[in-house]
């Protein structure tokens, strides 16, 4: 019996700069981005003021939901962040859910989340500098007393790292646990039917009968709930951090 838990498979290596690997993370992420772009273009084609089509109603519902989500959590003056937050949410959700189609989910690769978290960190820092000025931003590290500066630096750097690791850890733990459960069910199957004599036992022990029901319920939690939850939490934290960065000290 072999149980394989692996990172993102590498499809091809571009032979420049010591080899740039094209992993399945890159491929699936680009496919999802194309899908989302195509979906947006499809939904927003031929917009009308009256006599709206079903397609436009869906688009309006999505946009209204995103704007409500942002304005109820950040306040109405941050409404221009709604497209960014909605894009982050959709990308995170679809990336996590792509494991349902048998792909290696891009969010089970730390690089994806780390890239998003660094992007959010840049926005937070830019907002802080714009609010307090560069000098005020630097001075903020020595609050409340100068001795605490190293700890303030660490807590500043912990923000993107903990955001990335939270999302990554939740998705990967689901992946690891469901892989282990499939392996355990296959082993239990072999144990339950393997003792039957002759051809019947051989055939029955190779068909994974026990793997039919249980993984579906686990997938309900690990794939559907966890994906949705982590996308929601990532966007929620993004909004909270950005909104609190704009508060003057």
């Amino acid at each position: 019996m072999d149980v394989q838990i692996h990172g993102a498979p590498v499809y091809y290596t571009i032979p420049v700069l010591g080899g740039i690997p094209i992993t399945s993370t890159l491929v699936v992420t680009w496919a999802i981005m194309l899908l989302l772009t195509g979906l947006s273009i499809f939904l927003t084609r031929g917009l009308k003021i009256c006599n709206v089509s079903k397609r436009q109603a869906i688009a309006e519902y999505l946009v209204t939901t995103a704007e409500n989500f942002v304005s109820s959590n950040m306040g109405a003056r941050w409404l221009h962040y709604a497209p960014f937050v909605a894009a982050l949410f959709a990308l995170s959700l679809f990336s996590s859910l792509s494991s349902l189609l048998g792909f290696f989910s891009p969010t089970a690769d730390l690089n994806t989340e780390l890239a998003w978290a660094i992007l959010v960190f840049v926005i937070i820092t830019a907002t802080k500098i714009r609010t307090n000025g560069a000098l005020g931003y630097a001075k903020g590290f020595t609050q409340p007393i100068a001795v605490l500066t190293p700890f303030n630096l660490i807590s500043e750097l912990a923000t993107p790292i903990s955001m990335a690791f939270r999302h990554f850890g939740n998705i990967v733990s689901g992946y690891v646990i469901s892989t282990l459960i499939y392996a355990a069910l296959a082993a239990a199957n072999r144990l339950a039917f393997g003792w039957l004599p002759g051809v019947v036992g051989n055939i029955l022990s190779t068909i994974p009968i026990l793997s039919v029901g249980l993984p579906a319920f686990l997938s309900l939690y690990f794939d559907w709930f966890s994906s949705f939850m982590q996308a929601f939490i990532f966007c929620m934290l993004t909004m909270m951090y950005i909104a609190s960065a704009a508060e003057t000290e």
Partner: peptide, 23 residues
């Protein structure tokens, strides 16, 4: 509920660190 979920996600961080260390 949404505040609780956010708080739970933040409280989960140390557990996730442990899990990543294990991995």
């Amino acid at each position: 509920t949404s505040t609780m979920l956010l708080g739970c996600a933040i409280a989960e961080t140390t557990g996730i660190y442990g899990f990543v260390t294990g991995l």
